[in-house]
Computed example of a mutant assay.
Amino acid sequence: MEPSPEMLRKFMIFNPLAFERYNEMKSSGRRFVHYSTSEAAFYMIRSNRIRLRSSAVMNDFMEIEYGLTCLVRSWRGDNGALLRSTIDGMFPGTSEELAKLFDTWSPLFKEDTYIACLSEHENKEDDLGRLSMWRAYGGPSGVAVVVNPKVFLSVSEALSAFTSPVAYLTQDEFDTEFKRVVDNIVMTRDFLIGEGKQEFFNYLFQAFRSAVLCTKHPGFAEEKEWRIIYAPQYNKSELIERSVELIRGSPQIVYSIPFKDYPNKDFEGAELPKLINRIIIGPTQFPEELRAATVVLLEEANVPDAASKVVISSIPLRQ
Results as ranks from 00 to 15, higher is better:
residue 2 E to Q: 09
residue 5 P to I: 07
residue 7 M to S: 13
residue 8 L to R: 11
residue 9 R to G: 04
residue 14 F to T: 02
residue 22 Y to K: 01
residue 22 Y to R: 07
residue 27 S to R: 12
residue 28 S to T: 04
residue 28 S to H: 05
residue 30 R to G: 02
residue 30 R to H: 11
residue 33 V to K: 04
residue 35 Y to W: 09
residue 35 Y to G: 01
residue 36 S to V: 08
residue 42 F to I: 07
residue 42 F to H: 13
residue 43 Y to E: 14
residue 44 M to V: 00
residue 47 S to W: 02
residue 48 N to M: 03
residue 50 I to H: 02
residue 53 R to S: 11
residue 55 S to C: 15
residue 60 D to S: 03
residue 61 F to S: 05
residue 62 M to T: 14
residue 72 V to H: 08
residue 72 V to S: 06
residue 80 G to Q: 02
residue 86 T to C: 08
residue 88 D to T: 10
residue 91 F to P: 02
residue 92 P to W: 11
residue 97 E to Y: 07
residue 101 L to K: 08
residue 101 L to Y: 09
residue 104 T to Q: 14
residue 113 T to W: 06
residue 113 T to Y: 04
residue 115 I to Q: 00
residue 115 I to C: 05
residue 116 A to C: 14
residue 119 S to F: 04
residue 120 E to Q: 12
residue 121 H to I: 04
residue 126 D to N: 15
residue 126 D to R: 12
residue 135 R to K: 15
residue 137 Y to W: 10
residue 143 V to T: 15
residue 145 V to N: 07
residue 145 V to D: 07
residue 148 N to W: 09
residue 148 N to A: 09
residue 149 P to A: 13
residue 149 P to F: 04
residue 149 P to Y: 05
residue 153 L to P: 01
residue 154 S to N: 05
residue 161 A to R: 05
residue 162 F to C: 12
residue 164 S to F: 05
residue 166 V to M: 03
residue 166 V to P: 01
residue 171 Q to G: 08
residue 175 D to Y: 08
residue 176 T to V: 12
residue 176 T to W: 06
residue 177 E to H: 10
residue 178 F to L: 07
residue 179 K to Q: 10
residue 181 V to M: 10
residue 186 V to M: 10
residue 187 M to H: 12
residue 190 D to G: 12
residue 191 F to D: 12
residue 193 I to N: 08
residue 194 G to P: 07
residue 194 G to K: 09
residue 194 G to H: 10
residue 199 E to Q: 13
residue 199 E to A: 11
residue 201 F to P: 00
residue 201 F to H: 03
residue 202 N to D: 13
residue 203 Y to I: 00
residue 204 L to E: 03
residue 211 A to Q: 03
residue 212 V to P: 03
residue 214 C to D: 04
residue 215 T to C: 09
residue 216 K to S: 08
residue 216 K to C: 06
residue 217 H to Y: 12
residue 222 E to L: 12
residue 223 E to G: 01
residue 225 E to S: 08
residue 226 W to K: 03
residue 228 I to D: 00
residue 228 I to Y: 00
residue 236 K to M: 04
residue 237 S to T: 09
residue 240 I to K: 03
residue 244 V to Y: 11
residue 245 E to V: 12
residue 246 L to Y: 09
residue 248 R to I: 02
residue 250 S to V: 15
residue 254 V to H: 01
residue 258 P to W: 00
residue 259 F to H: 03
residue 260 K to F: 01
residue 265 K to W: 01
residue 270 A to P: 00
residue 274 K to D: 07
residue 279 I to N: 00
residue 281 I to E: 01
residue 283 P to E: 01
residue 284 T to A: 08
residue 284 T to S: 14
residue 286 F to D: 15
residue 298 L to H: 04
residue 299 E to Q: 15
residue 300 E to Q: 13
residue 301 A to F: 06
residue 302 N to M: 14
residue 305 D to F: 13
residue 308 S to Y: 09
residue 309 K to L: 09
residue 309 K to A: 06
residue 312 I to F: 04
residue 316 P to H: 14
residue 317 L to G: 04
